[in-house]
């Protein structure tokens, strides 16, 4: 199997895009692919502490992120510059490691497949 990098760059509650990306990442993991998830741009809002999806009749995105290790998706990264730009203090319990732009460049370069790279 190839190694997959899923980039989530859209805000979790503005559209279903981020949630559907996460579903695809979980399916790839079920297929025994090596899966890495990178949150960047508005996707970093997924790590905002104290989310309550039910306030807008949606699933709580952070709960779905918390399930990733159960799918053996354990390489979890977040763009440090995007966190700073949006002033998001990532919930540490979700286990996403802040990453520099240079390190993201290396991560993309070392991935066989990038899903969500342009959106």
């Amino acid at each position: 199997m190839k190694n997959y990098l899923f980039i989530i760059s859209r805000a979790p509650y503005a559209s279903s895009h981020a949630f559907e990306q996460l579903e695809a990442a979980m399916v790839a993991a079920v297929f025994d692919a090596s899966v890495t998830v990178l949150l960047r741009d508005e996707g970093v809002w997924a790590l905002q502490p104290r989310q309550e999806g039910s306030a807008t009749q949606q699933n709580t995105f952070a709960k779905a992120l918390a399930a990733l290790p159960a799918y053996e998706v354990e390489q979890l990264y977040v763009c440090r510059a995007s966190l700073n730009k949006h002033s998001v203090s990532a919930d540490p319990s979700l286990g996403f490691e802040p990453m520099s732009l240079a390190a993201q460049q290396r991560l993309i370069d070392s991935s066989d497949v990038v899903i969500g790279g342009q959106s």
């Binding site: 199997m1 997959y4 695809a24 399916v27 790839a28 692919a33 959106s119």
Partner: peptide, 21 residues
């Protein structure tokens, strides 16, 4: 088809290209 067919197609292919909205 299921999402697994996306992963299977990518795995069988040499290149994956996506066309975002």
């Amino acid at each position: 088809v299921g999402l697994g067919q996306l992963i299977a197609a990518i795995d069988n292919a040499d290149r994956y290209v996506e066309f975002p909205a």
